[in-house]
Amino acid sequence: MSDTKIERKPGYRTYFAVYAALVGLTAVTVTSASLDIGRLAIAVVLAIAGTKSVLVLLYFMHLRYEKRLLVKILMPIVVVTLAVFIGLTYTDILYR
């Protein structure tokens, strides 16, 4: 029953590996903030935050092992929705 939903269960090894990656990425992002890389900085911190979020979503929140189509597509739907809301608002902000 429950095993049909979650076939490959993550174990301690996976969880701690993800944890180590999250701590490591935090260190990278803090370090990168003290470097002088100009306008690229915001892209770097956002990319790192995005990577960390994906790790949490995939492993801690088990999306990687998800079988239900609805749950699988929810995050893409939300990200696209938010991107569209922000993008269309910027058609005003950028050209006002």
Partner: peptide, 19 residues
């Protein structure tokens, strides 16, 4: 709880790490 964590993952660099 993980959601709360994910939100903080974004809040942290956006407020504390503006270089």
């Amino acid at each position: 709880w993980h959601l709360v964590d994910v939100i903080w993952i974004f809040l942290f660099p956006l407020f504390y790490l503006i270089s």
